[in-house]
């Protein structure tokens, strides 16, 4: 029977045989492929659902409640959102601080990273060593130790004050002055240019050498080659780095927390958005209020990322569009 069953297909042509033979195989194989795929995906998928999607949805609910962590949440409607925008001067301050930080630290970081990538994209001896050295700050940058180091460098008798003092600028303590504290954090962020630099370096390596050759033959100098070849060819990478930077710097937390002892001081001058979320949620026990702030931040980041994507068609040149 089994033979007879399989002998049904030989009646057809060779071509149709192979098709008929392949069909059950094809139907079976993707199924098992998918099963294995889902199996391997499961740890991440479960993690996503349980530890990310679940809490995210709960926080959406909590943002409409009065919740102090210890007692059951009480539904208050949109009250948290209304309070944020009408009766909370510290929230406005947190927005000011965060926007100032994002719009200075992110571009400066990118420019710095690009400049160093250009420098390090040369064939000199020991270039690997230099690249490693310039990447180190990024490995250290987010850590508590560096935040404390920063406090010392920009403190009252810190290196910066002493050097400036040598040049006759008798300054104060930078980290503890409301006018300058935020700028020390911008500098800290710019100093962590490493990961953007590595991505730029990879981008620079992708630019075909013949473009430069052709341009050189046409008489283009270094500056022209940079403006008309390097920069346009690099725009996809710049775009990628820009999106990452926007998202990262909106969420900056650790340096401000350490340098200000968790308070966002002096005088709320380093009250980053995420730090204020933390203070309201975990110090003042207003978790519903903090959740509302978290959702607004999500929307803000979403809007700015979308703007970056919408603008990209005007300035980002992809290879295939050449």
């Amino acid at each position: 029977m089994a033979i007879g069953h399989s002998s049904e297909s030989p009646t057809a042509t060779g071509l149709s045989l192979s098709r008929a033979g392949a069909r059950p195989k094809r139907a079976r194989k993707p199924l098992s492929d998918n099963a294995y795929g889902y199996l391997f995906l499961a740890p991440w998928l479960i993690g996503l659902l349980v530890f990310l999607a679940g809490p995210t949805l709960v926080s959406l609910y909590l943002s409409f409640t009065d919740f102090n962590l210890l007692q059951p949440p009480k539904w208050v409607g949109a009250q948290n959102y209304i309070t944020l925008f009408t009766r909370d001067p510290r929230y406005m301050q947190a927005l000011r601080v965060t926007f100032t930080y994002v719009f200075t630290a992110a571009p400066l970081n990118l420019i710095f990273a690009l400049l160093l990538a250009l420098l390090l994209n040369s064939r000199i001896r020991g270039i690997g060593f230099y690249r490693a050295v310039y990447y180190i700050p990024s490995l250290l940058g987010g850590s508590v130790a560096i935040a404390i180091l920063w406090q010392q460098i920009f403190g009252l008798d810190g290196v910066v004050s002493q050097i400036l003092g040598f040049f006759g600028v008798h300054g104060s303590s930078w980290v503890s002055s409301p006018k300058q504290a935020l700028w020390t954090l911008v500098i800290l962020h710019v100093w962590q240019f490493g990961s953007a630099m590595i991505i730029f370096l990879a981008g620079l390596k992708q630019i075909p050498g013949e473009l430069y050759e052709a341009a050189t033959i046409d008489g283009a100098g270094k500056v022209h080659r940079f403006w008309f070849i390097t920069l346009p060819m690099l725009t996809p990478v710049i775009f990628f780095n820009l999106v990452l930077q926007i998202i990262n710097s909106f969420q900056a937390f650790t340096p401000a927390f350490i340098i200000s002892g968790g308070k966002g001081g002096p005088l709320d001058s380093t009250l980053f958005y995420t730090l204020y979320v933390y203070i309201q949620g975990f110090t003042n026990f207003r978790m519903g209020y903090a959740s509302a702030m978290g959702w607004i931040l999500l929307i803000i980041i979403g809007v700015f990322t979308a703007l970056a994507f919408l603008s990209s068609k005007y300035w980002v040149h992809y290879d295939d569009a050449r």
Partner: peptide
């Protein structure tokens, strides 16, 4: 001390 000296105290 002025504010910026006092603000340096983290503990």
């Amino acid at each position: 001390p002025p504010g910026e000296v006092t603000a340096l105290e983290t503990g």
